[in-house]
Amino acid sequence: MPPILQLDLQQILSQAISFALLVVVLRKFAWGPLLGILDQRRARIEADLRQAAESKEALGRLQHELSTRLAKIDEETRNKIQQALLEAKRVSLEMQEQARVQARAILAKSQETVEQELAQAKAMLRDQIAEMTVQAVERVLQQKLDQPSDDKLISGILDELERQAPRQAG
């Protein structure tokens, strides 16, 4: 009989038992640890990918929030600048008005002072003219004067008056 057809129950059972033992050994030392590590790695990769996706989503949310906040800040800044410009314009107008009022007051006061000084100068001039007239009359009365001498005297008095008038005004 060819060897392949020679059946032996003991050998059959031995082969079955040795295979069962091999399954037990490999399950303990190969399949268990390797499948376990593959599962762990798969779980870790999945967790990492999930975390990366969540981080990406969070980043997107933050970016959106940031851009919204920046837009809001821009708007607020623009409003504040606008308000500041309006305030500045208002203050400027107020200052202009105030300056105008003050200028008007100063002008009025200056005019009043000038008028007062002019009046004083006129009064002083009148007093001096009167005094000089008195002196001139006295001089005329003290000297015997002829007509040409009178004219000369009067014109001399008038010249002197003209010289003194600007000095009094200054």
Binding site: Q11, S14, Q15, S18, F19, L21, L22, V25, L26, F29, A30, P33, L34, G36, I37, Q40, R41, R44
Partner: peptide
Amino acid sequence: ENVVFAAIVAVALALVAWRYARHPVM
């Protein structure tokens, strides 16, 4: 004979598993 040759293969497999797959690393 056949059981011996099968056992040789089984032992070789078991040794490889013992040596390289017992404590796998990440």
